[in-house]
Amino acid sequence: MTQFVVYKALFGSYDKIEPINSELVQGNTDYFVISDIELILPAPWKLIQVERKFDSYALENRFYKMNGLDWFKNYKRSIYLDGNINFTGSLDRLLETLDTDKDIYAFNHPKRSNVTDEFKACLIYNKITIQEYLESTREAYQPFKDAKIEMFECGILIRNPKSSILSAAMTEWFELFENNIRRDQLYFPFIIVKHNLKIGSLGISNIRNNSEFFSIKAHTHKTRWVDRKKVLLYKKLNKLFKWL
């Protein structure tokens, strides 16, 4: 009986779907990639082809990342992975460690504990512009900074598709992303608190080095030389003058 589903949402040429080690492919799990084009995928990945809803690849990805639960109501758990994240360990072994009463699981952020610091890091690492950072200082963004919960990374989300409160929370999460500065984990703590979601921690994220279950690769798009220089400049300014 198929109980679990793993899925990714791929739009544009941002990432390449990697095959899963055959020893980790499980008979009780389905593996899907949601995309707007007819991809040729390595086994066991299967394609769910959709029509574009938005004129932005980022919006398209986040729509299915956050609202993909609507496709998977018949599964006990859905596991969303960013396009550049892959399995290195047994899914069954991971899932058997999780409490069944939780609505959602994610990794704790390895470096930052609050949304205010995340906004600063987004500017330093060229994820948002200076104009967007200044916008984030407006009163409208204060509720997101005031959420009394730790920061999580959102590249891996394990959810209960049958949760009665999760669907509305994910819908609002997408709306916040669509209508504000477009960094999804800035609004994640607010959504967890507002909707009283039962969240479980997968531990402090270690997927960049020694994770038992996941690995991450750099995105396939190339970072421009000028962007790398900007990151180095912002980091140096912040270290010398604490400019943020």
Rank of each mutant, 00 (worst) to 15 (best):
Ala9Glu: 03
Leu95Gln: 03
Asn126Gln: 13
Leu123Asp: 11
Val193Pro: 00
Leu176Asn: 11
Asp82Ile: 00
Glu23Leu: 12
Ile204Glu: 08
Glu153Leu: 10
Ile199Tyr: 09
Asn67Val: 01
Lys222Thr: 15
Tyr234Gln: 12
Arg93His: 11
Tyr141Cys: 07
Gln142Trp: 05
Lys230Ala: 14
Asn126Ser: 15
Leu186Asn: 00
Lys217Cys: 12
Glu172Asp: 15
Ser113Thr: 12
Ile165Met: 07
Thr88Tyr: 05
Cys122Phe: 08
Glu132Pro: 09
Ile199Leu: 13
Asp36Thr: 07
Thr2Arg: 03
Arg138Met: 04
Thr29Glu: 03
Asn74His: 12
Asn238Gln: 14
Arg183His: 09
Ser113Asp: 15
Asp146Ala: 15
Val25Gln: 12
Gly89Phe: 07
Glu18Asp: 13
Ile156Cys: 01
Glu51Lys: 06
Phe119Asp: 05
Leu157Glu: 08
Ile104Cys: 15
Pro19Leu: 13
Val50Phe: 04
Ile20Gly: 04
Glu132Trp: 11
Val226Gly: 08
Ala147Asn: 08
Tyr31Val: 00
Leu197Lys: 07
Leu176Pro: 03
Asp184Trp: 05
Thr137Val: 04
Lys120Ala: 13
Lys229Pro: 05
His109Ser: 02
Asp15Gly: 02
Ser113Asn: 15
Phe4Lys: 03
Leu91Arg: 08
Pro161Tyr: 01
Met151Asn: 03
Lys65Arg: 05
His221Leu: 10
Leu232Thr: 12
Ile124Arg: 14
Phe54Glu: 01
Asp227Val: 10
Ile40Tyr: 07
Thr100Val: 10
Tyr80Leu: 02
Glu135Ala: 12
Gln49Ala: 08
Asp15Arg: 04
Asn126Thr: 10
Glu153Asn: 09
Tyr133Asn: 03
Thr100Ser: 15
Asn84Lys: 04
Lys8Ser: 10
Arg228Ala: 06
Leu24Asn: 07
Val5Phe: 00
